[in-house]
Write a protein that binds this DNA or RNA. Structure first.
Length: 287
DNA sequence: CCTGCTACCTGATGGC
DNA sequence: TGCCATCAGGTAGCAG
C-alpha cells in the first residue's frame, strides 16, 4: 500500500527515469555557460566520508562558475554533465529531482542551484540522500568507476550477462540490485524483470541455466525499454515543481501489488524481504 | 575478493 | 484529533 503510493508520488528514479531526465535536460543546458553555482544545502555535495561539506560546497561553486556544459549523459543511475573542464555527476538516490526556472528567481527548497544566465537548474532532494559532485577527473567521482555494465549499452550482451551470473552466489534479486554487476536497475525494475523472466528472486545467480539466463537478459531489456518509453511520454517537465513521471504504475506487473492476483497465473503476489528490501513475486509462475 | 548489515534522511502512515 | 514510533529505500562503509 505505502509502496504503491510511493511510486505514484514520484520516487526512486532508476535507469529509465534518469535516461528520460538526461534527454529532457540536454536541450536546456548543452552549449550553455554556467554563470553561477550556489550550494544551498551543503549535505547534497557532502563527500561520502561524511565530513567537509562546507569545503566541498565552496569548491563546487568555484569550479562550476564560468564553465561550459558540453553534454549530458548517463551511466547506470548517474546523470553526467561533462563541462569544458571537469564533469558534474548527479545521483538522485530515492527522491532527487531536477527543477528548471526560466529566470534567476528560484522558489522552493533547492539544494544546489546552477545558473545559466537567464535560466537556473535546481537539484532538489527533500531527504538529502541524493548527491551532486564535481571532479576534473571523472574517475574520481565516488562510485562511478565501480559501476558494472549498463543494461542499455552495447556491452550488455547475453554472453556477458551469463558470465556475470555464473560468477555470483547472490540471490537473483540482490544480484540485479548490485550496481557493480549491472548498473541502473533498482528495486522496481528488478522485480519486474524477474517476473517477466518467470524466475524466483531467491534463486542463486549461478544456478540459472543458459536458457534462463538468456530469458532474464531479454526481460531486463524489455522492462527497461518499456519503462523508458513510458517515461518519455509525456516528456519530463522540469518547469513544473510538482512534475513527476506519470503512468509508471500502469505498466508494473508485480511491484507494489502484494495480495493482488498475478496477471498471468492463478497465484497471488507475495512480498518477501531480501537484503532488507521488499521483493514482490508470484509463487505460481516464478520458478 | 566477496557478501551481509547498518547508517544516512524525512515524509507518510498507523496505533493509541 | 493529535502525537510519536515505525518504516521505506540506494549506496557507502565497515565487519566478517
Amino acid at each position: 500500500m505505502r509502496v504503491t503510493e510511493g511510486v505514484s508520488s514520484g520516487a526512486m528514479p532508476e535507469l529509465p527515469e534518469v535516461e528520460a531526465v538526461v534527454r529532457a535536460l540536454r536541450p536546456l543546458v548543452v552549449g550553455r555557460k554556467i554563470t553561477s553555482c550556489r550550494v544551498l544545502h551543503p549535505i547534497a555535495v557532502r563527500p561520502s566520508s561524511g565530513h567537509g561539506a562546507k569545503l566541498a560546497a565552496a569548491r563546487i561553486e568555484k569550479s562550476l562558475r564560468g564553465r561550459k556544459v558540453t553534454g549530458v549523459t548517463r551511466l547506470g543511475k548517474f546523470l553526467l554533465m561533462p563541462l569544458d573542464r571537469g564533469i558534474v555527476a548527479m545521483h538522485f538516490r530515492l527522491d532527487g529531482q531536477m527543477v528548471w526556472f526560466d529566470s534567476k528567481e528560484t522558489r522552493g527548497h533547492i539544494d544546489v542551484a546552477i545558473g545559466f544566465g537567464k535560466g537556473t537548474l535546481g537539484f532538489v532532494d527533500r531527504r538529502h540522500f541524493g548527491r551532486v559532485e564535481f571532479e576534473e577527473d571523472p574517475g574520481k567521482i565516488a562510485g562511478l568507476a565501480k559501476l558494472g555494465v549498463d543494461p542499455l549499452s552495447k556491452g550488455f550482451t547475453r554472453e556477458k550477462f551469463a558470465q556475470l551470473l555464473s560468477k555470483s552466489t547472490l540471490p537473483l534479486k540482490l544480484f540485479l540490485l548490485d550496481q557493480k554487476k549491472v548498473a541502473g536497475i533498482g528495486n522496481i525494475y528488478s522485480n519486474e524483470a524477474m517476473w517477466l523472466a518467470r524466475l524466483k528472486p531467491m534463486r542463486r545467480a549461478r544456478s540459472l541455466s543458459p536458457i534462463e539466463a538468456a530469458r532474464l537478459h531479454k526481460s531486463i531489456g524489455a522492462v527497461l525499454r518499456r519503462a523508458l518509453k513510458c517515461c518519455l511520454h509525456p516528456a519530463p517537465n522540469f518547469r513544473d515543481p510538482n512534475w513527476w513521471f506519470q503512468g509508471i504504475e500502469d505498466i508494473l506487473n508485480v511491484y507494489g501489488r502484494e495480495g493482488k492476483k498475478c496477471r498471468r497465473s492463478d497465484g497471488t503476489i507475495l512480498r518477501t524481504e531480501q537484503g532488507g528490501r521488499s521483493t514482490f513475486w508470484c509463487r505460481g509462475c516464478q520458478k
